[in-house]
Nucleic acid binder design. Structure first.
Lengths: 253, 253
DNA sequence: TAGCACGTTGCGCTCTGCGCAACGGTCATT
DNA sequence: AATGACCGTTGCGCAGAGCGCAACGTGCTA
């Protein structure tokens, strides 16, 4: 809607691919070098872009700081965190908390497994929508038309033979998840890793987040992991209740 | 330099403080609502801003994705990571990797302690400049005038009684660090946590990163932690060599 | 020394982004 | 149910902000 800002912001994903010099930026934006320079300077002043010693541009420090601050302000996280830690202490596995936002699902908190084998994931990282247990829960909660539309336009990468193959299968899975109120990912993302997930709901009953426990086959089998389901669901419920303000009221005037 | 972009980017830190509605944004920017709306829309299209269900705006998902991607592209990280993991396996404590950028020091990688007591830190988080061991190393490497100028304009928060108190003390410390080629933080940031750090150098001898091992007093005393110094320095040197392309050449045409 | 490549600067034209004012929806008040 | 206040949204005319051009400076290569 605003040409100048639009162009400036288009620089960011471009630089995310790797450092680029002025000429490259100007060319890929389709603007004159002087224009690109002005935009880069503005981005630079705000710290979103950094000029490295060889004069090329990269994404800058403030970007991290902003993402950081934004994550910390997400209030579900505050409430959920101690519960996630306790769950981790009880079962020993990796615990994740994720939210849905604008066609994406993001991890917003994580407590690492106590076992040496760890999953690759990171706070702020977008989640594989078609296979992750938390994604299934969050997407299953969308209004039907939206869910359908999203399912249609997704890609269905075959991470493993057990990955969700297509939109039809995915919608069926979502319907199941919606009904049973929990979800799993049994080797659909990484061959040897299983997850069980449960929903966190707000006062109005809508999903605000989803949490999961993940563990590799070498530590516990899928069946053993499923025995943790009641514990996971109970934890999610406690968080839901606290988030809705029902339960352990701390202090209020 | 570019008014429109400048205003648009000013919205980001504002939203980082917490969600805000259109009126608040317009007021704090000192522009008309319609202007603020146009800017917010553009930010929204790029995914940097998200509109939550109560119509207020927050920072959006793409911000995380960008920061994420940028971190992963930082190539020191790629090279260093396996070494950090190995160091963690050998000593069991939390290992950090940090870089300097535009008056800030950022953690770009972290391997958690195997002990239950963990430090609060996160990848992408700016580091306390005046006390952290990695910050001392990175700042000590700046050209003298720049170092001096930066030291003058910093704040010196008294996190603990052992925090660096002022610019003079800091410059003295930096000179020492520069000479000895390693640094410590003995309870200067958090009372009970100590760190030892060593530099990672590029082919030209300039610092490209710094790494540290951190542990709380309850696990090992400061003296015991210092016995790890040779190991930390050796690891840093290995990374330096590999980063400079000297050592374990993998493949090249 | 000449040539090239790249970042940088100043400037005049014009298109873009600005604020105004009016509209429309939602919610609380009477 | 009707009123009014509040907020987000829209269309528009004006002016100034941002655009591209062309010329300059610098550092590297041949």
């Amino acid at each position: 809607m605003s040409q100048t800002v639009d162009r400036a912001l288009s620089i960011l994903p471009l630089l995310a691919e790797g450092p680029a010099d002025l000429g490259q930026v100007a060319e890929r934006l389709g603007v004159h070098k002087s224009t690109a320079l002005r935009l880069l300077r503005t981005l630079h002043e705000h710290g979103l872009v950094y000029r490295q010693s060889d004069q090329r541009y990269r994404l800058g420090a403030r970007l991290f700081a902003l993402a950081q601050q934004a994550v910390e302000n997400l209030d579900v996280r505050d409430i959920a965190h101690p519960h996630l830690v306790r769950l981790n202490e009880e079962c020993g596995h990796t615990v994740h908390l994720a939210v849905y936002e604008e066609n994406e699902v993001l991890y917003i908190d994580k407590v690492d497994s106590r076992y040496p084998v760890r999953m690759y994931s990171r706070i702020g990282k977008p989640v594989a929508l078609t296979v992750a247990a938390v994604a299934k829960l969050l997407l299953a909660d969308l209004p039907e038309p939206e869910r359908r539309a999203l399912a249609e336009k997704l890609d269905y990468p075959r991470y493993t033979p057990r990955s969700t193959p297509n939109a039809a299968a995915f919608l069926t899975e979502l319907a199941l998840v919606r009904e049973q109120g929990w979800a799993t990912d049994l080797g659909g993302h990484e061959e040897s890793i299983n997850c069980v997930a449960a929903p966190v709901r707000g006062a109005d009953g809508r999903l605000v987040a989803a949490m999961s426990v993940s563990a590799p086959n070498v530590v516990v089998s899928a069946d053993e992991l499923l025995t943790l389901l009641p514990l996971v669901r109970r934890t999610a419920d406690v968080i839901s209740r606290e988030y809705s303000g029902n339960s352990p009221a701390k202090d209020a005037p």
